[in-house]
Design a protein around this nucleic acid. Sequence first.
DNA 1: GGGAATGAAAC
DNA 2: GTTTCATTCCC
Length: 910
Amino acid sequence: MKGSNRNKDHSAEGEVAGKRPKRKCLQWHPLLANKLLDFSEEEEEEDEEEDIDKVQLLGADGLEQDVGEADDDESPEQRARRPMNAFLLFCKRHRSLVRQEHPKLDNRGATKILADWWAVLDPKEKQKYTDMAKEYKDAFMKANPGYKWCPTTNKPVKSPTPTVNSRKKLWAFPSDSSRDLPSPKKAKTEEMPQLNFGMADPTQMGGLSMLLLAGEHALGTPEISSGACRPDISESPELRQKSPLFQFAEISSSTSHPDAPTKQCQASALFQFAEISSNTSKLGGAEPVKRCGKSALFQLAEMCLASEGVKMEETKLIKTKESDSGRIKELEKGKEEREIKVEKTDTTGSQEEEEFEKLAKENLRESKELRNLEELQMDDVMSIKMEDSKEIRKEELEEDQKYSHFPDFSYSASSKIIISDVPNRKDHMCHPHGIMIIEDPSALNKPEKLKKKKKKSKMDRHGNDKSTPKKSCKKRQSSESDIESVIYTIEAVAKGDWGVDKLGETPRKKIRTSSSGKGNLLDAKPPKKKVKSREKKMSKEKSSDITKESRPPDFISISTSKNISGEVPEGIKAEPLTPTEDALPPSLSGQAKPEDSECHRKIETCGSRKSERSCKGALYKTLVSEGMLTSLRANVDRGKRSSGKGNSSDHEGCWGDESWTFNQCGTSGNKKFKKTKPKEDCLLGSAKLDEEFEKKFNSLPQYSPVTFDRKGIPVPRKKKKTGNVSSELTKTSKGSGDKWSNKQLFLDAIHPTEAIFSEDKNTTEPAYKVKNALSIPNTPEPTMQEPLVGSQKRKARKTKITHLVRTADGRVSPAGGTLDDKPKEQLQRSLPKASQPDCSDECAHTTEVEEVRSSTPEIPAVSAFFSLAALAEVAAMENVHRGQRSTPLTHDGQPKEMPQAPVLISCADQ
DNA sequence: GGGAATGAAAC
DNA sequence: GTTTCATTCCC
């Protein structure tokens, strides 16, 4: 039973089941928690309500307590638990597998094994988890700004209820009950939207109010947040916008600010959610603006938006207007169009515009579909004009140039995306004309949708996402035909027809229609699908594949490689691919692999990819400039790794690719062109969060024991390392074989030689190790017979690490100096490798391996100083400490170099 | 509730 | 540097 039950979700189940009533900390994400714990919608709702009531009565403190209690009984959801770290995530994800394999083992044993696996786990893979954990944490923190990991003294204090809860409560949220509280319940409390703004006095309301507010706001927040968050951007654009429409929009639509959505788009679902929640809380609390600034992504997005803000805003305004006054839609549309036209003419008076309009009109007359397409195009044009009538022409003219000059930026891509979104929304909105669509409409719509969702279906919501998504879906479906046309158009654009599009809209449209086959799913599609998929997620169907496919590998690499797989996870989970990496299904691999695909991608789809790439580049720059490199870096690393792994399917799937993708897209898009994008994220927001969270879990690569075994082998093998050590390797591996005798080695301070060597190997052949893996299946043994146990081990390990680090430092010179030269070379070598490897693990491997080997000889020197594993660990640790986690480790191709460099640096710093 | 692991935060 | 807590669940 146990084992069987434990499957993947059991964790949640277990909690739900009440296995552990233990802790009741507020959940960091209500939604997430809910999902995780239990998806029962009904219960959640009820619970929520109940909880709320209780909370109200009790007050902030009470709330926590209550929650906790409630949790015990009913829903654990409420407590916010501290975010899991990478290892925990890993454990959570793999524990079931371990247990399956080793039914005998109890959790402890499983934990040990997991630890071993974790130790063996490739840095890449580890990073995935680490990144996830990081995001998770970030989201959590956003959601619960006041959250403290350790209550410090509070613990005892608060536990009003004597129960075990004391702990939880304590640390849960110290000062700001209001803030904190909200997060947990918020999701559920949707019902009381009014409270949100509320202004509710935190004092009076206590945590409850906050919770409620948060919940509702979370959903609805986007709007608010948008307004608050991006005053700068929005304003500036607004100012620019002279058109009456704008004013009208402002007045009419509270939601007018598209900004919010954008933000969301940028950030991963979790982030978005967190932001939303945080926003909500902040709203109550006070500084909406800050919130915006907090997240790097957000800032980035802002920046991007700022650049494009004008465009966006205009369109947004229009949209808003429309949205707000659905009734007037048509009339307004006419007005808007007229106005726009007027403006155009006035400002630019470009004939082209007129032409477009004419075309559009004609098309409209002819066929709705055409209309939509043209409209979209028109919209784009319009928007552009809006921004700078003067520049508009340039842009158009330059389009071609852009391609040539800026391969990265895919103007077309941006437009594509937008369009894609637009259609969908349009459908929803029922707007015949395309204008609204273009840029951020989604944003506007999103908020509304969100609200609606909440209002309409709290229940549904629980269902979660389903309901929400459904709505969107439904709408979309209604206009599938339109959508399709749009899609086609998008695709065409993506392909590069864009330039033509402007000039010759019609042709394109038609062209791609057929293409929609999606096999290729150009960029354009992806976005749409993503959005849709998200919405649909509820159903979970997710055409994840499609989405994934659609997602450009680039994104993946950039944002996080996880994507794609999105997952297949569940199914796959059970059977991780032994080879993990290699295992990727061909189809997936093709799609998934970022890097590998790069080559292909380029060939296949220039446009979309370009756009993505451009986005990446832009983002990267921005991030760097901003100093946000950290997050970015992590993403990049992931991407690389993922690519390296290749899509191994599972791995990549990690989070919601979607979220990442969106984020990136959004960001990049914003910067350069109006991309706008996906706003839907906002909608998805809450729902998505849930989904994403789940997805993330699911998506996290689940490695089959076999894989680990292999890895395990490799690890030991690593010891062996390069040539000479082979004998040693074997020794180590065999001797201690199991689990990590290595540890002992390390503990012991690692004999310079052995340990180092072995590690070196790792370094040298990170990814390969698996391949190379000697044949020593040992890993899985449940219990290890290590001399050190528990804390001792930990200490030993730390010591070991420290030791290494110091060595490095001491050596800094040594390690650095000595290694530097060689490493650099290796790095160079490795870099290329890394890039290529992705293509196909196997192929890449081969190549890489060879390369590695070639480099291997050199390695020894380096290895002599530290082992790769040690380095990696150190680097990881250091990074973590630094706050950036990143890096490093991508041993795939370049074990030595990458890790070393960081290490050295760290040392230097120290 | 303890424990097995790791990690992150807080002290 | 040391504690606490996160997850999981048997003992």
